[in-house]
Design a protein around this nucleic acid. Structure first.
Length: 509
RNA sequence: GGAGCGUUGGUAAAUCGGUUAAUACACCUCCCUUUCACGGAGGAAUGACGGGUUCGACUCCCGUACGCUCUACCA
């Protein structure tokens, strides 16, 4: 790092294009950006790269910002939050890019190209592995092959054109990647990328360089898929703003699909049954819903933690980190080079850990909403939290709380009578009838007392408590699950406990 | 095809040349729990391959294989 870089305020940006939901990989890129910025007391900027009008999707920008808000990764500057470098949408910055393309043109570092899509296609068919580069640009229709007059004429006649960068021949372009070290490309291997499209919009390549400069970005983190086009960006920096002002690059490893090979995609999630988006995403065109981690019952703390662990660790073996801890401990040189396969089981484990670590009051409201969705009203908040405390260790996702504890708030929907019946006899029936009487008369209603009474009664009937506990449990909860039976009975209260025993006794007759 | 990047158990991964290669998830066995979990004890399972460098290599170098990404007027 140079001295100037040390003194400069750290500024990073996440630059998504609003073409749909934001997937795991995107959120992780945000996270690493955010952690780095906050660790250095810097700024985290969100810039919307909406230069491709054909792929623009309504609502995608809001969705992206909402995702960040849920994760707690709040930008310092964005189209929503504003900031000193506004506007933060590239479509609103359109005039700026043209100016730089013109400068490149004037300096002979870029040229006009008039080839139509059909002509390009034809060339691609004619020449295998065609690239618009040093080897082929002489064959094409551009200001390099046309005379000045011809070019002028085409321009004046309103013919559509693009502006392409003119890559130098056989030159080594080297830059340092914070994660991978020194990386070198030969310009002969790179093509003359389009900088400005026929509609006047810049491509990513021009826009990213211009905006990173104008927004004073010091560190640029992005997915590994950008590596092959990095030399174009480096060259653009050299031509336009000087290499000394170029941000430090870091190309993040990809998140891979759990089975097979390749980048994790939304499709993989659909196919394998796990979310790949943070929040539910509804495609505005097809109305197709893609499920999100939030709706699946993940806590944002767990989601962020899990994402951080995908490609980074602090070397100590610690796995559970709060966002604050991540900010403190994150380091770019501990980020892996290789991609990691996404493991949904492990993701769930993180949620389970967070469910255990966080006080239930932190998520009681969320669980309550889930209950209300099932038409189960919760009016006693304190009692509710007590129940959550009792069962939280058997829950992995927030939704599990409903399954695991709805019997506290309403009669079980189904009673697993089949598990009682085979071993049911008159002796047991008698025991429960008597237990019922004893419980109805009891003045104390605490788990310990109920258990003593239960066991004494069992002894009196010459029955093993073990044979009776399961039927009792099923009477109260409907199935073979849940916390200790007597604790359940205590919380349920006398009236409800008695009523449930009676109910099942009736079913067994 | 080309270029770049990558490769430690099934998965995520520690190790920054030095005894039997951590740990977590998943799996198996057992204990605890007269339910389900949690928790505890244990088990099986790994350095792609081939060359170097070195007293010594998972670690450094070279090659091979394999994989990924890119190769759009998409980002």
């Amino acid at each position: 790092m140079t001295d100037t870089a040390i003194n400069k305020k750290v500024r990073v940006r996440f630059a998504p294009s609003p073409t749909g939901g934001l997937h795991l990989g995107g959120v992780r890129t945000v996270l690493f950006n955010y952690l780095f910025a906050k660790q250095h007391g810097g700024d985290f900027i969100v810039r919307i790269e909406d230069t491709d009008q054909t792929r623009f999707v309504e609502g995608a920008e809001d969705y992206i910002l909402e995702t960040l808000a849920w994760c707690g990764l709040v930008p310092d500057e964005s189209p929503l939050h504003g900031g000193p470098f506004a506007p933060y949408r590239q479509s609103e910055r359109k005039p700026m890019y043209k100016e730089y393309a013109d400068r490149l043109l004037a300096e002979g570092k870029a040229y006009y190209a008039f080839d139509t899509a059909e002509e390009l296609d034809a060339k691609r068919k004619e020449i295998s592995n065609f690239q618009y580069s040093h080897a082929t640009r002489g064959l094409m229709k551009n200001s390099l092959t046309l005379t000045i007059d011809e070019t002028e004429h085409l321009l004046n006649s309103g013919a559509p054109y693009v502006i392409r960068i003119l890559l130098p021949e056989n030159q080594e372009v080297t830059f340092t990647d914070l994660i991978r070290g020194e990386i070198t490309f030969n310009t002969n291997q790179v093509d003359d990328k389009v900088l400005l499209k026929a509609d006047g919009m810049p491509t990513y390549h021009l826009a990213v360089v211009v905006d990173d400069y104008k927004m004073q970005i010091t560190h640029a983190f992005r997915g590994e898929e950008w590596l092959p086009s990095a030399p174009v960006h480096v060259l653009l920096w050299k031509y336009l703003f000087g290499l000394e002002n170029m941000p430090q690059w870091a190309h993040l490893p990809l998140i891979l699909k759990p089975d097979g090979n390749g980048k994790l995609s939304k499709r993989d999630g659909d196919r394998l049954g796990f979310p790949t988006f943070a929040l539910d995403w509804v495609d505005p065109k097809t109305n197709e819903v893609t499920i999100g981690f939030r709706e699946r019952g993940f806590l944002p703390e767990a989601f962020v933690n899990m994402l951080a662990a995908l490609g980074w660790n602090d070397g100590t073996g610690q796995e559970v980190f709060s966002l604050e801890e991540l900010v403190a401990k994150f380091s770019i040189d501990r980020v892996h080079k290789g991609g990691a396969k996404f493991d949904y089981e492990k993701a769930k484990w993180y949620n389970q850990e967070w469910l255990k670590h966080l006080p239930v009051s932190r998520y009681a409201g969320l669980v309550k909403a889930l209950f209300e969705k099932q038409n189960i009203a919760i009016d006693d908040n304190k009692g509710f939290e007590r129940v959550l405390e009792l069962i939280k260790e058997r829950c992995v996702l927030l939704n599990d709380f409903v399954e695991q504890s709805s019997f506290f708030f309403k009669q079980p929907d189904t009673i697993d009578i089949a598990s009682i019946k085979p071993k049911w006899d008159e002796k047991k029936n008698l025991f429960f009838v008597e237990l019922l009487r004893a419980y109805e008369l009891s003045t104390l209603w605490e788990a310990a007392d109920l258990e003593v009474e239960f066991k004494e009664s069992a002894a009196a009937h010459q029955l093993k408590p073990g044979e009776l506990m399961l039927p009792f449990r099923i009477m109260l909860v409907g199935g073979k699950f849940g916390p200790g039976v007597f604790e359940i009975a205590e919380i349920l209260g006398k009236a409800e406990t008695v009523s449930r025993i009676k109910n099942v006794l009736g079913m067994l007759e």
